[in-house]
Design a protein around this nucleic acid. Structure first.
Lengths: 339, 339
DNA sequence: ACAGTGGCTGAGAGCGCTCTCACACCCCGC
DNA sequence: GCGGGGTGTGAGAGCGCTCTCAGCCACTGT
């Protein structure tokens, strides 16, 4: 018998000389199937090279075994590591990740989510661009498919979210700089539309106020969340006549840009400019001096998101949980002698 | 009228008071539909919040509008950037990426491909773990779905492949080191099962032989393609009594490990050890001295793969193409004064 | 002897869509 | 007036699967 071009359950059934229903049961592992029939079906499937068609299965079962993931940029090591952690967890349960980049653009995020919904993902993980605009996510509630926010929250949206203690992390960073006597700390930031950024800025201001220092808005320099954005934002600060003697960078790409800018200005870390960066990176220990960072548990973030999503997929319908993961200040040498 | 929980084309048809077929035509944009009917259908769809069900569509049309991507590790900036380039290109045509990690493990690669086939991806992009073992990919031919190999080839598999000129890149790296008088060049390598690695090693040996130097197999130190792997592989070389005065690292994670090892041994670049790395990385210009690298057009790689795949999806059935992208030696200061 | 039970099987519906087909209608030219 | 196109519509098949349901055939217990 020649194998059909695409082998269906009916081909297998015919070959095994049982009904389509019995073949489906044997293959699907449900209902009653006699030992002999099962053997015959499994053998036939093997011989014909039968592959289940997950699309057909999804159409009737309503489950595609896929998880949609929307991040700002998969090239960003932060998102890549989180995606990896998420993938590891959900793949264990037979799910596959559907990936989409939003480019930190709300319109693209909307489109990505729309496509993912169309693909009938079983669950959705989003690192939303905006902490304010959540209408396109609110719509998902009616889909009755779990949604978990990763790293960022949306005001007034009651859904599961796994985040990092951004405010606390920023505060420890600032307190560290304060210890070195810095009272004018420049911040290299991306848009505070992003909820994690807003939280970091809040932590920054809080730490200053707690130390009796009124935050100077002019010391917060904003740019796009890219290396070039970090470079430019840092430059603005470094060009000031009253240049701040300490910098706090809010994310990894911008940190790289800021370090480059500091170098290009002929300034030295930590003598001319002290630096603390949010987010750990591979090279922070490779540069001289190694950079003090607020490390985030990135892989853990992805895994926690995955665990939450899987729980929902298993039917957990408790009220939405908001989880915060701790950050860790890793003191190196970018702030002065001994730190 | 209350919107049904999940709105189907039939709900829209009922609301628009036309047949299901007409609604499908209006929504699908094919066949004849009168202007009035079209309006009614579109309005009804809008009001009910109709979203097409891509799973059902895929079942009948045979196209899921998804592309499967299997890479060693999405956390690796190389793969992440390539994935990004690929995503950008295919998303423009309405495709979504289905992502899977193989962890550079053949068995996991097999499983990932199997899952992706089951999901009926329209096309598949694989960076295969092994350059020798391609049976699991050969099977795909019968699927009649395009397959493009990314960055790595498989011996005896006649399919599209977009790669980098690994041998040439390695050669320019070695020639550069030779110019500085190095004749004993240690290599920090991952498994030569990986075709790109094998090619780089070939280029390395070729360059040496062309210079009249017989390659010493003892100078090639192999480890897993991780930071720790690079560290250990470099350590083996650095611990030798006749320690090589030059190192060539074959990929980005291992480069980071090797640099760390050199530092930990109290050695200085380039005075004690000259270094050329394959693959450009963000931090290579941030460390002191900045590292001379063989840069690969990574985003371009992803985009070229995407272009090839899209061509196939559009029906191009010419004989498989093997494309090579040029590398570029970026000379910095890790080999000595002036390079 | 006969209902009751459990193991096993096949028929068939139906998931939401695309697409073919038949047909009804219009306007045209002869 | 009547055939012939083009235009618009609806009925219905069918993609490959899951799952319900009815019915079969042993056995069992009384």
């Amino acid at each position: 018998m020649l194998a059909p071009v695409v082998v269906t359950i009916r081909d297998v059934a015919a070959r095994a000389e049982v009904s389509q229903a019995t073949a489906a049961r044997a293959l699907g592992g449900y209902g009653y199937v006699g030992a002999a029939s099962r053997r015959a079906v499994l053998d036939a499937a093997q011989e014909l090279g039968y592959r289940p068609n997950n699309v057909a299965r999804a159409l009737v079962s309503g489950s595609t075994r896929t998880i949609g993931l929307v991040v700002g940029d998969i090239e960003n090591p932060f998102f890549a590591a989180a995606a990896r952690g998420l993938a590891d967890v959900v793949e264990e349960e037979g799910y596959t990740l559907l990936l989409a980049n939003s480019d930190e653009d709300l319109e693209r995020e909307r489109r990505a989510i729309d496509v993912l919904r169309t693909q009938l993902v079983d669950g959705l993980v989003v690192a939303p661009v905006s902490g304010n605009d959540g209408d396109h996510l609110r719509v998902l509630e009616s889909d009755n498919r779990p949604l978990v926010l990763m790293d960022r929250a949306i005001r007034g949206l009651q859904v599961d979210a796994v985040m990092v203690d951004n405010a606390g992390g920023a505060r420890t960073a600032i307190e560290h700089l304060l210890k070195f006597g810095h009272d004018r700390i420049g911040v290299v930031s991306d848009a505070d539309e992003i909820s994690s950024t807003a939280e970091r800025l809040r932590g920054y201001r809080k730490a200053l106020r707690d130390a009796g220092i009124e935050p100077d808005p002019g010391l917060v320099s904003v740019g796009p969340s890219t290396r070039a954005g970090g470079y430019d934002a840092a430059r603005v600060l470094l060009e000031r006549p009253d240049r701040p003697r300490a910098l706090f960078t809010l994310n990894n790409f911008m940190t790289a840009g800021a370090v480059r800018a500091i170098r290009d200005f002929g300034l030295r870390i930590p003598d001319d400019v002290a630096l603390v960066a949010f987010d750990e990176l591979e090279w922070t220990t490779l540069v001289d001096p190694p950079i003090t960072v607020v490390a985030q548990p990135v892989a853990e973030l992805g895994r926690a998101v995955g665990a939450r999503l899987l729980a929902r997929l298993r039917g957990d319908d408790s009220t939405p949980k908001r989880t915060r993961l701790r950050t860790e200040l890793i003191v190196r040498s970018s702030c002065g002698p001994g730190g």
